[in-house]
Every structure is written in structure tokens, then in C-alpha cells.
Design a protein around this nucleic acid. Structure first.
Lengths: 328, 328
DNA sequence: CGAAGTCCTGTTAGCGTTACCGCATGGGGG
DNA sequence: CCCCCATGCGGTAACGCTAACAGGACTTCG
């Protein structure tokens, strides 16, 4: 195929290859002729052959947990965009469970595909084990992973976000803040619990027991019903917006008004949260930035630069109408 | 690398290759030895080399519109799962806009990656042009695309879904049903409009003017405010659940109760819709099935079997509490 | 007991590209 | 005026795998 182009341009295959990979090393006039032939034949280099010859593939692997979820989906999208802009293509492995086994399996698969680098979106505790024992020599960057790993990590600062949410509620005069968290197996969920707890303790507030949901509205609803029974509860920080939706409903059904009787804060700022009833005060995570950071850190890794990064993206508190002053 | 395994097992490279690709063609005893060596060396075949030799890559391309949206994300996820189960890996191109140019560009890219087949998730009218003029010889399957294409299409039967929603509302005694549709540039949006209109016309009901949103809750809210002003409006079929959320809020703010004064039906059945206020009656699309069908149709295409399929997946009406009898 | 399979394994060549070295050509310095 | 070097291009050999054919040992049947 390359030969065809070469023949048409009246040069050798090698010259065509050079024209495409190191244009400055070929005379302007020849280059013109070659490029014309390339266009004429609509030539596209065969990536497999190129990869075999060079060892590089121009493909990145992304292993992610369930890309149906808002966070992972947004992160993936922005990784993909950044990659495309830099002439990489993206191969995916969405896992429903992140275990050491499944991560290693995906990594092996990517490895045999000779991907140039891998981004692992691993907001799950079970992934930590897999990440700590990475045997591959492929550059790897983790997103939303815990601390203490040998690979660079890019993540939203969950503690800071939770702290902001909690302080916001305290500043409205609430005596303390209840927390409805995500599953203990999720890194992010635990980071939020920590941020929340730290603020309460620092201010000398009582630390109520944490309830654990599974991120779904259903679980938010179920746990919300219990919270609604307790008249002491006047402020709730919920681990994500979906659960917050369930909580809002539970409170309403129990006759407790939001924000007059109870204030609620969510996490994520999903696009719909501004249209919940009432519009939800929440913590916005900039997944866009996370994805693009992750990509660039990976680029650095691949170039051999740096490592051992832990990059925190700052979340932002979005105040809407689900929070208000305490009436205590 | 293959040579190493061969050496360790004391056989030729070819025998190793056979052991991996056609185990029955090699003696059980030899096979054992080879497999032992494979494990010993943790050998993984190089896909680029294999691809160069065979012409097949084991990679599928998926080009999709914004995979942040619920539908495309779910479809992608289920395609990926089906592919993985069949030892294919998936390369993605999420486009923010589907135009003939961008589709062709992605296709070229996939082509030079020698993907074995491509699935195009193209719920957008602008994609039709690109799909009609496909020049590639790669097997292609379209998801959620319009009619009259040369490639097989797998899609949810939007008209049937809309018809069900509309009939449901009429059966509750409403004189007619208003429709808040998605953008006219979206195939699905138009299919829903048609299904809705057909039912109204068939029953001799008045056909109110269609409003067009952009799928977002915001647009649902804005258009909902207008509908809320009109006392004749007692039943609204909304193009998706996000917009329906906005409509619910607009109605509530205008003092119109749902479902007592106005009934609302959405489309998609996003996981949260059961926790809207009130829980939303909606039309469930089985994206899971769409994705897995698409994959299998592509498999057929790749095997040279069939073509010209148009496979409709049946949507399902989920009745919750946002619809009720007319009080007219 | 020999010819004709049958089964298994090995040999050779080639997939399309790039790395590496080598060979012209031409221009400038000694 | 000759030699040396820079510049530009071409030839050849990989990269790691499999297709296609080849050949040897062992059956099987007349």
C-alpha cells in the first residue's frame, strides 16, 4: 500500500514513510509530490504495521467502573476528547466490578494490544489492591483512587468538597449535620465522610452516626425516611445527588419542609439537580478537568517525565434552595 | 516472543500458534507442554502482529454522540459488555456533533486501525447524510438511526413508545394530549412526535402545537411554564425524563397539581424518575437490549450473513403517579 | 507386506511499516 | 583541483505472527 504511493510519486517507500513521519527530512519538492500521491490514493497508514515496527500504537486504554454513572461517564468523555485532540485513540473496558482480578485482566488485555498508556478510573476501594500490585511497565494514571499508590493520581478533593458542604450548613446555624454516605467500598464516599467528620469535630459539634446508601435514589429514599422521623435532624449532607433526590422525597412525604425544617446538600451537581424540588444545593465536581488532567499526566508519564503526582481538583459549592437557616 | 515459548516447550513457533488458535489440531500431550510454557512465561500474543498476519484485529469501533447522555452511555455500556464476552475490544469516538464530516473522519480513523466492524450510535438527523454515503467496506451497524439506510439499524420503536404514552393519557379521559418534544434535529424526538400525532389523529382528537426543547431540564422548565398558563392543558407527553422534571417543577410553581390538574408522562425511565415528585410515569427504553442486538447484528454482518435488517426494540410504559384521570 | 491415507509438526514466506546503514550528489574549504 | 562532509534518498532487514505447503511417522486396508 505504501508501495503504491511510492510508485505513483516516483520515489521509494522509505521516502513516503519519511514524508509522513519527519517531513523536514525530505526535500520540499519531493514532499509535495508524495503528499499529492497520498491524497490521490487516499492512503492511510496501517496502524498495525506501524505499531509492529515502532512499538507504539497511538492507543490509550481506559479501564473504568460502570460508565453509565454520571461521574465516570463524564470523565471518560473528557479523556476521550483530550486524547483525540492529541491524535490518540481510546479503547475502553468498563467493568461492573473493580477487583484486583478484573483490573489485572483488563490491563493484560491492554498490554497485549500494546496500548501506550492506561488510565484507570477506580473510585473503589477494591481497586487499591489491584493498583498497588501493578506489574506492567505501561504508564498508568489512576483517577479517583486512594492514596499510597505508586502511580500518579488525579482526583477531585472529596474532603474539601464535603467540608465546604458541611461548613455551609453549620454557617446557617444548624447545630450539627447528618450525613448519608455512599457505600463504604467507595473511595469518594469515604473521603466525603472524612471531610464532613473533620469539620464537625473541629467545630466541636456532635458527630451523628453515618448512614450508608448505595448511591441510588431508592436508597436515599429509604434512609431518608428514617432521618425524617428524627426531629433533631435539621441538616443533611448527602453523598450524591441521586440519593439526595430520594431524601427530598422522603422528607416531603413525612411532612418536613425543605429548607424550612430540614436543609439538604447533595454532591456532584448533576444537570438535573437545579430542577429538583426544591433546587438542590450541591457540590460540583469538575469531571471535565479531571479527565483532561489525567490525560496530560499520562502524557508526561509516557514521555518519561515526572511521576508520583497527586493532583487534586477543587470542587465548588453550588448554593440553591434546598438549604436555609436553622430555626432552632 | 512466540519463539521463546516455542523454545521452552521444545517445539516450533507454529505449534505454539496452533495451540492457541486451533487447539484441536495439536496433540494433547504437546498442547499441555505448550500451555505450560505459555503460563510460565506469561505469554500474551502481540495483537498488532496477529492483525498484520491475519487481517483481523478483534477491535470494534463505536462512534457515538455525546456519551454523557443517558441513552448513548447505556447503549455503549451494553455494546462493550457484549463485545467483551465475545473477545472483542472496543474503541470509541464520542462526538459532540454528528455531521457527515465528523462521521466520515471517525470512520477513516477506525479504518486505518483496521477495526473489524463499526457501530454508529446516531440518533441525529444530521447523521443520516453521513450514513447514506458510507464508502467503507467495513461492516457497519447503526443504532437509533433513521430509515432508508443501506446499513442495518437497531433502534427502539419510538413511535410505539409515544403511542403508548399518548393512549395511556387518552384512556384516562383527557380530551387531548400536549407534547413537549426534543430538538427537531433528533431522530428519536421526531419519531415520538409522529407516534403521538398518529394516535391523536386516529382518535379524532385535537392536535395541539408541538413545543421543542433541547432535552435539558431547563428547557422543560421554560416550556412548562407556558403550558402551565393554559388551563386547557390537562395532559402532557414530554420527550424525555429530564425535560419532564422541568415541567413538573413549572407546573408546581404555577400552582397546578400533578396528577390532579395535569398528567405528565416522560420518556427513557432514567433511574431517578421513580423518585421525582410525583414519581414519573414514563416509557422505558431497553438500551441494554439495543446494545446487545446491535452487537449481534454486527457479528452477522462481519460473518457475511444477512444485512438490511431493521430491528425494533419494544419500549414499555411504566405507570407511576404523575398521571391520573381527567377531571374534565 | 506394500500403498495410500491420516495425523501431527516443521519450514518458508509474507503481512505493511520503519530503523539503520549506505550510497550518490553537490558545495565549500584547504 | 581534490577531498571531505552535509544532504537526500534508497535498500535491506527486522517487528511477531500465521497461511500454506511440506514432510515424517504411524495406521489401515487390500
Amino acid at each position: 500500500m505504501l508501495e503504491d504511493v511510492a510508485a505513483l510519486a516516483g520515489v521509494s517507500a522509505m521516502t513516503v514513510s519519511r514524508t509522513l513521519n519527519a517531513p523536514e527530512r525530505v526535500q520540499a519538492k519531493t514532499r509535495e509530490r508524495v503528499l499529492a500521491a497520498v491524497r490521490e490514493l487516499d492512503y492511510r497508514p496501517n496502524t498495525a504495521a506501524r505499531q509492529l515496527a515502532t512499538g507504539r500504537s497511538g492507543v490509550l486504554g481506559v479501564v473504568s467502573i460502570d460508565t453509565t454513572l454520571y461521574g465516570p461517564a463524564s470523565t471518560l468523555y473528557s479523556i476521550e476528547r483530550a486524547a483525540r485532540l492529541n491524535d490518540y485513540s481510546v479503547s475502553i473496558a468498563s467493568l461492573s466490578m473493580l477487583t484486583r482480578r478484573s483490573i489485572e485482566e483488563s490491563l493484560r488485555q491492554f498490554q497485549s494490544q500494546s496500548v501506550d498508556g492506561v488510565i484507570i478510573v477506580a473510585p473503589h476501594e477494591s481497586a487499591a489492591d489491584g493498583l498497588r500490585h501493578l506489574s506492567s511497565k505501561i504508564p498508568v494514571v489512576a483517577v479517583d483512587a486512594g492514596a499510597g499508590l505508586s502511580v500518579p493520581v488525579v482526583t477531585v478533593d472529596q474532603r474539601a468538597g464535603a467540608a465546604r458542604a458541611t461548613r455551609h450548613l453549620l454557617s446557617l446555624g444548624h447545630e450539627t449535620v447528618w450525613h448519608l454516605a455512599g457505600p463504604a467500598s467507595w473511595i469518594d464516599a469515604n473521603g466525603r465522610v472524612e471531610g464532613w467528620r473533620e469539620v464537625l469535630e473541629a467545630g466541636g459539634h456532635r458527630v451523628p452516626e453515618v448512614s450508608r446508601g448505595d448511591w441510588s435514589s431508592r436508597s436515599g429514599y429509604q434512609l431518608g425516611r428514617r432521618l425524617a422521623q428524627d426531629p433533631e435532624v435539621t441538616a443533611v449532607f448527602v453523598g450524591n445527588d441521586q440519593m439526595a433526590l430520594g431524601v427530598l422525597r422522603a422528607l416531603r412525604e413525612a411532612g418536613r419542609r425543605v429548607p424550612e425544617d430540614v436543609s439538604v446538600v447533595g454532591f456532584d451537581d448533576v444537570p438535573e439537580s437545579a430542577y429538583f424540588w426544591p433546587p438542590l444545593t450541591t457540590v460540583r465536581q469538575d469531571f471535565e478537568e479531571v479527565g483532561s488532567h489525567a490525560f496530560h499526566v499520562l502524557l508526561d508519564q509516557m514521555a518519561g517525565r515526572s511521576s508520583q503526582v497527586r493532583r487534586l481538583v477543587e470542587p465548588e459549592l453550588i448554593v440553591r434552595e434546598s438549604t436555609g437557616p436553622s430555626r432552632g
